[in-house]
Design a binder for these strands. Structure first.
Length: 259
DNA sequence: ATGGCTATATGTTATAGA
């Protein structure tokens, strides 16, 4: 089963590039972030026509996550628990049943800039809530994939110019420590489990020729529970998507599971 | 790099992104 995460940066602007990638990459599951659309505005037909079941958790203008799946999605949950007052659409869960049941979490972790400040406080609080939810899900001891735009550069080798990010919410020590606390619950980060070398990125800024200069960062991750890590066959980054017409500033990252 | 581009809605400007 091929499972991908892709921050599309707006479904209205990305319908063409997204469907072209789906037709070429043919993932069984695609976890999408930044749909920037309300649920009623999401063009479900584009994906249902291609054989996908569609679940969305959107809001007006910003944020928003979605799951596309060739297999039915069950027990869908929207929103990250732990703060009833949080209205930002950044978290969706569902179970997909293939050879065995697999729990999926699609997430768009807050950017957090500028730091310090209220947006950074929200990022850290959100990560604490995510850790609590992840611990609950791990207790089920079933295959679990938490994938999305983490807005975290885990290590210096995950940035072309790490020195440019030292004051940034994506790379501050406190951000990376919060990320490691989640990882250390027992997750395997799929890409690093298979590729130890530097120079692999999932985001290039639209500005300043970042793509042309390969000035990227790796911030889109798939975290696997032990039961899912046991099934990991392969992981990759679809870098070519950044070179297409009207691209997102992120590219898809995918795994192949023996499930 | 002092935000150089892109997307959306609040819409000929503001807000957010990373």
């Amino acid at each position: 089963m091929k499972i991908a995460t892709f921050n599309i940066n707006g479904i209205k602007a990305r319908a063409e590039a997204l469907t072209a990638w789906l037709d070429a990459a043919r993932p069984d599951v695609a976890l999408l972030q930044e749909i920037k659309s309300v649920d009623e505005g999401f063009p479900r037909d584009l994906f249902e026509d291609r054989g996908y079941f569609v679940e969305t958790h959107g809001q007006k203008g910003f944020n928003g996550v979605a799951i596309l799946s060739k297999l039915p999605l069950e027990d869908v949950e929207r929103g990250l628990p732990g703060d009833e007052g949080d209205e930002q659409a950044r978290w969706i869960e569902a179970t997909v049943v293939g050879a065995s049941a697999l729990r999926l979490c699609g997430l768009y972790l807050p950017n957090g800039n500028p730091a310090p400040g209220p947006k950074y406080d929200y990022k850290l609080a959100w990560m604490a809530r995510m850790k609590a939810r992840a611990a609950d899900l791990l207790a089920a001891e079933m295959p679990l994939v938490m994938a999305g735009d983490y807005n975290i550069i885990p290590q210096p080798e995950d940035a072309a110019r790490p020195e440019a990010w030292t004051e940034d919410a994506l790379f501050l020590p406190e951000s990376r420590a919060a990320y490691r606390r989640i990882l250390n619950l027992g997750f395997t980060e799929a890409f690093r489990a298979r590729e130890p070398r530097p120079g692999h990125y999932s985001f290039w800024d639209y500005q300043a020729g970042a793509w042309e200069r390969n000035n990227g960062i790796r911030i889109d991750h798939l975290l696997l529970s032990p039961q899912a890590a046991d099934l990991l066959m392969d992981c990759g980054i679809d870098k070519a998507a950044r070179a297409g017409d009207k691209p997102s500033d992120h590219v898809p990252v995918w795994i192949e599971l023996a499930a």
